Deep mutational scan, measured.
Amino acid sequence: KLATQLLVDLAEGCHTHHFNSLLDIIEKVMARSLSPPPELEERDVAAYSASLEDVKTAVLGLLVILQTKLYTLPASHATRVYEMLVSHIQLHYKHSYTLPIASSIRLQAFDFLLLLRADSLHRLGLPNKDGVVRFSPYCVCDYMEPERGSEKKTSGPLSPPTGPPGPAPAGPAVRLGSVPYSLLFRVLLQCLKQESDWKVLKLVLGRLPESLRYKVLIFTSPCSVDQLCSALCSMLSGPKTLERLRGAPEGFSRTDLHLAVVPVLTALISYHNYLDKTKQREMVYCLEQGLIHRCASQCVVALSICSVEMPDIIIKALPVLVVKLTHISATASMAVPLLEFLSTLARLPHLYRNFAAEQYASVFAISLPYTNPSKFNQYIVCLAHHVIAMWFIRCRLPFRKDFVPFITKGLRSNVLLSFDDTPEKDSFRARSTSLNERPKSLRIARPPKQGLNNSPPVKEFKESSAAEAFRCRSISVSEHVVRSRIQTSLTSASLGSADENSVAQADDSLKN
């Protein structure tokens, strides 16, 4: 292990032709098999893994070397290190390495390699500790012929580059190093199909959405987006994914797998022009299946994007999809995704031109529960009313008269009656009930004795009459309010007539 670390330190600071010789020695160290011998017992696995620490030291050392060589000349050094790393990870899946030390190597290698970024000039870069990406002036992410390196360097940008540029090249004859992302992409596909350690798979799935944002990485080298989509959909639809995973937390289920895969599918929607129609349908189907899991909100957001990006695919699945959405409970976490999906859909009339009455009724059935102001915040309630109004205007004229009683009944049950079921009123009724029952229970537990009763009969009569009056008032709060309003209006009217009579009498006395 110490000798391997010494080789790594020497290679990191070497800029001459001896660098390749040092890498040859490190490569021989990495070539050791990580498969346990067949006769190895389970209690000896930890000791055997400790004997392979030099392999881990070599791989982690290459990660440090690549981070240094990416910004220094010659660029061919970075290319050689990158290829060695990718080849080593491929061996893991070729020979099915399952030892804990092998999983640790893959975890740290993917953690580093999935941080690679590219700008519009195809320059590769890595983020620093502050998250700012520094791009290399010597390494690009696409394949290029050595003699055409300078031509590639002087080509115009596709868009303004992001991030601070690296140091300027030493001279005009500098050759750019090619670090094609397709090599890593193929290893990522192998990981999605064969990885057995949940920690490694979770890391890859968590980092892929951010990497897919940099389309330069994908399009400048032959990366098959179709295969990526197929691998992701197979993970969700195939039963073998959960069987092969180990190291998963207790209670791990298909729902947890959906939570990890759906963000990658959402990021892949922007590549729909490069996906086969069959793959697009598979993607939409997987998102529909996710509606029954805890990732339902993410799936609804993804389907909203699909309705804009892939209208030809979503239009066929939309009638059944809208009916499925009615089975989702009206909760605060689902309110905004569902209502925004319906609001977006209302502005795309070509998608729902074939809707029948059942689909329009489903839209109103989804939106009406969110009009309850005692359960949802003001934004959700306003958005629900907006969706109902928009869809009522957009639905066909023959359907409107049939939906009017349905909508008014839903609004009455969710908006008007919600004020009668407020917690304050319920607590008031509970308190009044307890007050009504309390005197009775006290009389049963403690019967009054005439000799020891010091309270006069008049006081008892007053208290009983007050309790009886309170019971009468607490029967119905709404009736009490109505009666008080009527009494107030009658009182004001009587006072007004009394004032008029007094004024008339005063005038008569003055005349006399």
Rank of each mutant, 00 (worst) to 15 (best):
V179I: 14
K202G: 05
A50F: 07
L126N: 03
L73P: 14
L126A: 07
S96I: 05
I89R: 01
L63I: 13
G247Q: 07
L176D: 12
S159I: 13
R80N: 02
S178Y: 13
H95N: 10
H95L: 09
K94N: 12
L124V: 15
G156P: 09
L121Q: 10
A248E: 05
L99T: 09
K215E: 02
D130C: 07
Y71E: 03
S159Q: 10
K215C: 03
L126E: 01
V81A: 04
S120L: 05
L70H: 01
V179H: 02
V200T: 04
F219L: 13
E145A: 07
T162S: 12
L70G: 02
I105K: 00
N128E: 06
R134A: 08
L99C: 05
G251M: 05
V216G: 06
T68H: 14
L115E: 12
S76A: 10
M235D: 01
M84Q: 04
V81N: 00
C139R: 02
S221T: 04
L66A: 03
P209W: 03
M144T: 09
P164F: 10
V200H: 02
Q190K: 11
V204N: 00
S237D: 09
G177S: 09
L66T: 02
D226G: 09
Q90N: 12
I105E: 00
M84A: 08
V64C: 13
C223M: 02
L63F: 11
P164Q: 09
C141L: 04
P249S: 07
S230C: 07
T241Y: 10
H77S: 04
T154M: 11
E147N: 10
K215Q: 06
R117I: 01
L158M: 10
D197S: 06
S155F: 12
H88V: 01
K69L: 01
L126G: 04
L183S: 12
L85S: 02
V55P: 00
I65N: 02
G156R: 09
K215M: 05
V133Q: 04
L91I: 13
K152C: 10
A118Q: 02
A50E: 12
T68D: 06
V225W: 02
P209N: 09
V179C: 14
I218R: 02
G61K: 02
S159Y: 12
A78C: 05
Q190L: 09
A173G: 10
F135P: 04
R246E: 11
H88I: 00
S104M: 11
S224T: 04
E151W: 08
V216W: 04
V81D: 00
L188V: 08
V86H: 01
K215D: 02
L189A: 03
K152R: 12
L183K: 10
T154R: 11
L184F: 11
P157C: 11
G238H: 11
L232K: 00
P165Y: 09
I89L: 11
V81Q: 00
Y138S: 07
H88P: 00
L184R: 01
L242S: 05
A118F: 02
C229H: 03
M144G: 08
L85G: 00
G247K: 06
L184H: 03
L73D: 08
C229K: 01
L236H: 02
L91R: 13
T57E: 12
S155N: 12
L236E: 01
L91E: 10
S159G: 13
D197K: 01
A118K: 02
A58Y: 00
D130P: 03
Q194Y: 07
D226I: 03
H92N: 01
C139D: 02
Y93W: 00
M84K: 04
L208C: 01
T98K: 06
G247M: 07
S237Y: 05
Q194V: 08
G163S: 12
C223W: 02
L124S: 04
S136Y: 01
L228D: 00
S155E: 11
S49N: 11
Y82M: 05
P249D: 09
F135G: 02
Y214I: 04
G149S: 13
G166N: 11
A173D: 12
P239G: 12
Q227R: 06
L66F: 12
L176K: 14
P137K: 09
P127N: 04
R123S: 03
L208Y: 01
R134C: 06
S103I: 06
E243D: 13
Q90D: 12
L116A: 05
D130S: 08
A231Y: 05
E195N: 01
P127A: 08
S234Q: 13
V216A: 06
S155P: 10
D54I: 01
G247D: 10
P161C: 12
V187D: 02
K215G: 03
K202L: 03
K56W: 04
E250N: 11
M84I: 07
C233F: 07
I65M: 08
E145P: 11
L52P: 01
E145T: 14
L99R: 01
S178E: 05
S211R: 05
K199C: 11
Q67I: 01
L116P: 02
D142P: 02
D130R: 07
Y214E: 05
V64S: 15
T154W: 14
L99N: 06
E53S: 09
V133G: 04
S221W: 01
S155R: 11
L62C: 07
S150R: 12
D142V: 02
T72A: 09
Y214S: 07
V55H: 01
Q227V: 07
G206V: 06
F135L: 03
A231T: 08
S221N: 03
A75R: 03
K199R: 13
V133P: 07
L232H: 01
V216E: 05
L99I: 06
V204G: 00
C229G: 04
K215S: 04
A248Y: 12
I105S: 00
W198C: 01
Y82T: 02
A78D: 00
S159F: 09
F135M: 05
K240M: 08
L158D: 11
M235Q: 01
E243C: 07
A58P: 00
K215T: 04
T79E: 14
R246H: 10
F135A: 03
V86A: 05
E145D: 12
F185H: 03
P161G: 10
E83A: 11
Q190W: 05
C139W: 02
L70Y: 01
S150C: 12
T98Q: 09
G61D: 01
C191Q: 00
P100I: 01
Y97W: 06
H77V: 01
Y93T: 00
P180C: 05
G61C: 00
D142M: 03
V86R: 01
A58G: 06
C191D: 01
R123V: 01
H92V: 00
P239N: 13
S234E: 10
A118T: 04
S221H: 03
S230T: 11
R207T: 03
L188N: 00
S103F: 02
A75S: 10
G177F: 07
P74H: 03
L203F: 07
H92Y: 00
L245I: 11
T68N: 09
L60T: 14
R207N: 04
P180A: 04
T98M: 08
C229V: 09
G61S: 02
L201K: 01
S150P: 13
L124A: 11
R244Y: 04
L176Y: 11
G247W: 07
H77R: 03
L66K: 01
P249M: 05
L189N: 03
K199T: 15
T162C: 13
L99F: 03
A78H: 02
Y71T: 03
H95M: 12
I105Y: 01
L116W: 04
E53Q: 06
L121I: 06
L183V: 10
L70C: 03
L52Q: 11
E243T: 09
D226C: 03
L201W: 01
R246K: 13
P100A: 09
P160N: 13
G163N: 10
K202V: 03
C223S: 04
A118V: 06
E145Y: 10
H92E: 01
E250R: 07
S87F: 07
Y93M: 00
K193Y: 12
N128H: 08
T57W: 03
D197N: 05
G251C: 05
A75C: 09
A173K: 13
T162D: 13
L188G: 01
P161K: 11
L126T: 05
P222N: 09
W198E: 01
P157L: 10
G251P: 05
Y82I: 04
L189H: 03
Y138C: 06
C223E: 04
G251T: 06
V133I: 13
S234G: 13
P74F: 01
R244G: 05
K69V: 01
V86D: 01
L60C: 13
S103V: 09
S159C: 13
S196F: 08
I65T: 04
C191N: 01
R244W: 03
E53G: 09
K69D: 00
L115F: 08
P222G: 09
A248R: 10
C191S: 04
P249V: 04
S234A: 13
R213E: 05
S221P: 02
